[in-house]
Design a binder for these strands. Sequence first.
RNA 1: GUGGAUGUAGCUUAGUUGGUUAAAGCGCCGGUUUGUGGCACCGGAGACCGUGGGUUCAAGUCCCAUCUUCCACCCCA
Length: 437
Amino acid sequence: MAEINRAIKGTGDVLPKDSYRWQYVEKVMLDTARLYGFREIRVPVFEHTEVFSRNVGDTTDVVQKEMYTFDDKGGRSITLRPELTAGVVRSSIEHGLIYEALPEKVCYIGGCYRYEKPQAGRLREFHQFGIECIGAASPAADAEVISVANQVLRTIGIEKISLEINSIGCPTCRKEYQKALKDYFNANIEELCDTCKDRLTRNPMRILDCKSPVCSKLSENAPKVIDFLCDDCKEHFEGVKAHLDAAGLKYTVNPQIVRGLDYYTRTVFEFVSGDIGAQSTVCGGGRYDGLVAQMGGSNTPALGFGMGIERLLLLLENQKTELPADSKCDLYIAPMGEKAAVKATQLATKLRFDGFEVATDVCGRGLKAQMKFADKIGAKFNIVLGDNELETNKAIIKNMTTGDTKEIELDSISDELMSLINRMALENLTDSVFNNN
RNA sequence: GUGGAUGUAGCUUAGUUGGUUAAAGCGCCGGUUUGUGGCACCGGAGACCGUGGGUUCAAGUCCCAUCUUCCACCCCA
């Protein structure tokens, strides 16, 4: 196929047969967030480049090599958002949300853009669900935010996924830790892989999650952040664990967790799974107590997470999690001839206003072809409209699963259809009850 | 950005040491008494063999380049 007729590298289409899966998980996300008091915020797909470069971090890979940045016609440097937190915080400051009753709790779903080489669970356009809790410093907020992610995952039906948490301290205690870390790795600098030699000066904490055997071996005995936390940070971390225990969340403390965005402080966490290829993080987040002030707001603590929707869907597929099935056509109306077609339009329109999913012929096909079509789209019931029906104003309605038929008045078709569908649902229910016993 | 694999109808694939109009299954459209679909049978549409060069009398098959897709690294959701 010609290149111009294909979707751009790293982007994908959600086809009609799959879109209900997206709609379902998005609904669970928004509904669950609402149970915790998070309301949806919608922010632009692009921002001034500095919103990201200054706040996500100048030295991060995301900013250094992955952003879609361009000049608009007015000469402004614009960037497609690589994540949503920076834009949401910008909006919260701009509209004074951080000066309202705190905490300000917001959630969002939206596309993000990163120029990376695509692979399993990684696209150039991908979608994130996320929440931000702005203006809450207590450990209870950390546990609440993590609980939202947990409840979303459980509600959707994800079974095998684990929560890993860590604390990377505040700027003060982290400085001391990084010094100790540098000293440790400098003593073993010859053994480090090439990229880690580079990391040693740029961001030594990244060495901790290097996958090269030598580096990870070395990391095992490296100083741990937790031992360097100041009293406040330590107390906060203990508080988070206590609240997580109270909420019934299982977690493991993983000192290797270091997030790649500069704004994180104290609590960081990930939900990880081995079922989606090399990209194991489905959800990642943490506290960013310094970001709001850094972006020009008053000193306001905050935290949040991002959840990759494509990765989540991939995980559902790989774990063979059943989602509620897509809805099917309730009734197919098969007209024979032009007069009947007009009547079909009248009936179909009325039934749709009554809330039924109704299809009828729009291709001018013969009866047989129409029946085949009705079967293919999974219509629950059908009626045929011919001269007889037009004359008597009665028709045979047929259950396409059981083959049962019934004569009905066309004038009361809505009520008849309703009771037939209800009966069908009831039978399916009792069937499944018997099968489960 | 680095590395490995890949590319033939909408989908899954066949295509023999290069040799006439590139096959098949599924899917799609229509037909087998215009009053009922699923099954069966019959017929039809649909591919410049990823793209561009090259070798050759001859390239889907060989060579080079390029792009796509997939997987991994880096990094992240």
